[in-house]
Amino acid sequence: MKEIKIKTKDLILYYGAKMALNSISLDIPEKEVTAFIGPSGCGKSTFLRTLNRMNDLIPNVKITGEVLVDGLNIYDKQIDVVNLRKKVGMVFQKSNPFTKSIFENVAYGPKINGINNRKKLEEIVETSLKKAFIWEEVKDRLHDSAMGLSGGQQQRMCIARALAVEPEIILMDEPASALDPISTAKIEELIFELKKHYTIVIVTHNMQQAARVSDLTAFFYLGELIEFGKTRKIFTTPDKKQTEEYITGRFG
């Protein structure tokens, strides 16, 4: 078993008076792909967003419990959220490029980290785009607007943008849900490659996708973690009846 990268303990989250996550405890190992599955509104995306404190942006959210990243509780008062997010990157469901050039998009993270040397930025942009398997497609139009890319290209560019900050963990919130099968395949291939260097947590409602890319799978239902284990086991011999019903398509 690999080292534990993220550990949550009794994580409870309220939106106002409504409990959205009920006492989630789970361990996410380093340099593996962990998938969160479950029907819409089950809390899987909410849980993902607690891992880099993106939920801080939503008013009326109350959180108790602990999220340990490398053994540090990220909800500790002493924690600097900005630096935390540099370490825990995120790719969103809807690709969200800035209305800037491809180059500026990818260079955004390094720039806010104080890298202004043009040569260095070019190097980072190239490396990041290569790692996201999109370099060949865009290398001749780095200074065109990112809005001109196709949906799949935009999403891979957003991944490159996240990689440029050199995170250790990448959170992916249904990264392929809006994409066609070919683009989805490319993203999946990319995830497979990325897990050599990064810890990846992916939310998906596509069970085949979870089965294809992940090493571990967590099944959420109505704000609760129902079952968590090796992907192969979850998809073949789940312990819980609800998991089995969901996977065999009886609800969700």
């Binding site: 900005v82 997010r85 969103f92 490029p97 800035f98 209305t99 943008r161 900050v165």
Partner: peptide, 17 residues
């Protein structure tokens, strides 16, 4: 769009940045 603000924050930008 809110998504753009989120993207920026998720890259480790501060609010003012």
């Amino acid at each position: 769009p809110r998504e753009m603000r989120e993207a920026s924050l998720a890259l480790g930008a501060t609010k003012w940045e």
